[in-house]
Computed example of a mutant assay.
Amino acid sequence: MPQNSPRLNLPYLQPSQAQKHVTHNEALRQLDIITQLCVAKINATIPPVAPDQGEVHALGNTPTGDWAGHAGSLAVWLDNAWHFVPPRIGWRAWDESEEKLLVWDGNSWMPPPVATENLDGVGIATGYDSTNRLSVRSPATLLSHDGGGHQVKINKADASDTASLLFQSNWTGHAEMGLTGNTGFTIKVSPDGGTWTNALSIDPASGTASGAAVQTSADDTTPGRLMRADYGYGPGNLLGTVSENIGIPTGAVLERGATPNGDYIRFADGTQICTVTLPAIGCTTSEGALFASDAAVWDFPMAFATGSTVAVSGGGGASARFIGFEAPTETQVAFKVLSTTSDATPLPPTAVAIGRWF
């Protein structure tokens, strides 16, 4: 029959053994040391000066003094002497100094393994429930990278479900953003958690924006709303090509240009102004009490709208001269320069035509 038990090394009582109580008490003392094991310190190296009876230390790799040569063992102070017990794999001990449970893995004392998959829930400094299976009570929550980028993913089952972030005050929702009932990104706000307004929605196919925070039409001037690029004007479309659709401007605010026939400017409201400095001309042909230049035609640099009324005015180039215009068409006007005296001096007249381009 062996002298000691195979796992805990407890001494057996032997047949015909004298003073069996000694062996029995030694086994009880061994059990007293390792059962419900609590250690004063883990990886201890220096024996305390005045240990308490039954005080246990888990020794480190380089113990000194009375502990020398017992690396990794449990050192127990009993009857004014240190007793040493080598731990076995799987032994558990409560670390009194750190207040945590540890397990001996054959080389060191480690935290016990914890199953982290398929948990019912996790509550950090608070409790979880069947809806909020992960609950965190903290001034802040940090999710950091692992050497590169980092994503936070919220996945829903179907397009009609919700995948969003809900912002609450005293457990009442006041703002929500995400995929709420469709696949377009939406930002919603609420004054009371019951009535909600879609402030901003972004179409997933086109990327265009709509919602209560955005203009609904070109003439929507509701205070506080964001201006849509196709309804408003900015540095990119103040100057450019003007255009319209059924009388509603669809292009730039102003269009300015020049041709060999003069300069023009078009406004988004349909107004067009054409200006020109005509070739120098003299006035020597007698017409009644006045003297006239040869008849000429000004072809407008840009045509006016068909059927529109064009107003033309101008100057003859000198105080004694003026221009006489015939009725203009949408594309040109005939004119003569008139003078109160016969004057062959070639002077350039100017002209302005105002009308509509649509």
Score class of each variant (00 low, 15 high):
A296N: 13
N155L: 10
T45Y: 00
G173F: 13
R7D: 15
L200T: 06
E255N: 14
S164C: 13
P249N: 03
E96I: 14
L166A: 10
I89T: 06
T221P: 01
L166N: 06
V76L: 01
S138V: 00
L254I: 15
G60N: 06
A212Q: 11
N4W: 02
T341F: 11
D203K: 03
G121V: 11
P86G: 02
A229P: 05
N170V: 05
T341G: 14
Y233K: 05
G324M: 12
T180N: 12
G72P: 08
M1W: 08
T222W: 04
F267C: 13
W298P: 10
L200G: 11
T35M: 11
Y128C: 09
N198H: 04
G90D: 04
L37M: 14
T195E: 13
A229D: 11
K188D: 05
G324W: 13
A252W: 06
A320Q: 13
V152W: 06
T259F: 09
M110V: 13
V76R: 00
A353R: 00
L278W: 06
L119Y: 04
G184N: 09
N245Y: 13
E330N: 07
V103D: 04
Q53N: 13
V214D: 00
G314L: 10
C274N: 15
T222A: 12
G211T: 01
K156N: 01
Q14V: 14
S135F: 10
G60T: 12
S243W: 01
T216P: 01
T45G: 00
W298I: 02
T180W: 00
E330P: 00
S210K: 05
E287G: 06
V85K: 15
Q14S: 13
S210H: 06
N107A: 09
K153R: 11
I248A: 04
V189I: 10
T116G: 01
A93Q: 07
T197N: 13
A212M: 03
V297Y: 02
S342R: 02
N9I: 09
T172K: 08
T162P: 03
S308E: 06
L78C: 05
T329F: 01
D343P: 00
V352Y: 00
Q272W: 09
D129Y: 05
T141K: 02
M110E: 06
A344C: 03
W77S: 05
Q19Y: 11
G262T: 09
A303P: 01
S97N: 11
Q36N: 15
E287D: 15
A252N: 05
A344F: 01
L101G: 12
D203G: 03
L166Y: 01
T222K: 11
V333E: 06
P204D: 12
E255K: 08
N198K: 11
L134G: 01
Y233S: 08
S130N: 14
T275D: 09
